[in-house]
Design a protein around this nucleic acid. Structure first.
Length: 211
DNA sequence: TCATTAACACGGG
DNA sequence: CCCGTGTTAATGA
């Protein structure tokens, strides 16, 4: 298991102090997931919180029959919704799906509380909670203004960031599903963005230009 | 006004 | 041929 400790150290020594790294190595479970693997279903009880080492996870919220993409998780992030569920001991209100092949350490949620005595852990939790909160507020703004353009641009930016590539390989249908709207609208807005020379459109491909 | 649904044509793989 | 894409017409919120 000293392998695991080394891995954790490599990824998180910039975040956590030595003793906390030890604790994480002690109780953390290393896990690899494939792209599109479902990690958390709505209604299930969350027993672990993920600390991402590599890859990315997308978080959906379910409303009625639909699923709405809330945000992406990357290395160094943790899931604010997980924090919620843990503290309240409630069922998950979100669904988590691997955006790509990913690697993570799973930590039992009980530890979340225990570790609050670590300054670095408190900062980490508050920091990620804070950034999620801000992101959510932004999301609400654009929803309230019914501004699909903004949402789509943000979606594309996020997608490019997590893939570290300005070329996004996905279909309009896929985007429409994740943003909970129709393909016609996505096609139309993408076309508009193309005319504004912000993106380049190919079959199954979107190339970001001015970002 | 703008999203959605259905329908259609085009074209690449 | 199948699927993704671009567009339009009808309908509704």
């Amino acid at each position: 298991m000293k392998d695991q400790k080394a891995i954790i150290k490599d990824h998180f020594s910039y975040l956590f102090e030595e003793s906390l790294l030890d604790e994480i190595a002690l109780v953390g479970v290393h896990r690899n997931v494939g792209a599109d693997e479902v990690l958390i279903e709505i209604g299930s009880y969350v027993k672990f919180m993920p600390l991402l080492l590599s890859g990315a996870i997308k978080i959906f919220r379910q409303e009625k029959e639909n699923e709405q993409l809330l945000y992406f998780l990357e290395k160094g992030d943790t899931c604010a919704m997980t924090l919620n569920c843990c503290i309240g001991q409630t069922k998950s209100e979100i669904k988590a799906v691997a955006e790509m092949d990913s690697e993570m350490i799973l930590v039992p949620i009980k530890k979340m509380e225990d570790w609050l005595s670590y300054k670095s852990w408190r900062s980490f939790v508050f920091e990620s909670y804070n950034s999620r909160m801000l992101e959510m507020l932004e999301a609400i703004d654009s929803l309230a203004f019914n501004n699909l353009d903004q949402r789509l641009i943000k979606y594309l930016k996020d997608k490019a960031t997590i893939n570290k590539n300005l070329t996004i390989e996905t279909s309009h249908r896929e985007i429409a599903y994740e943003m909970n709207t129709s393909r016609v609208v996505i096609s139309r807005v993408l076309k508009k963005l193309e005319k504004e020379e912000k993106i380049d459109l190919k079959r199954n491909k979107i190339i970001l230009l001015k970002f």
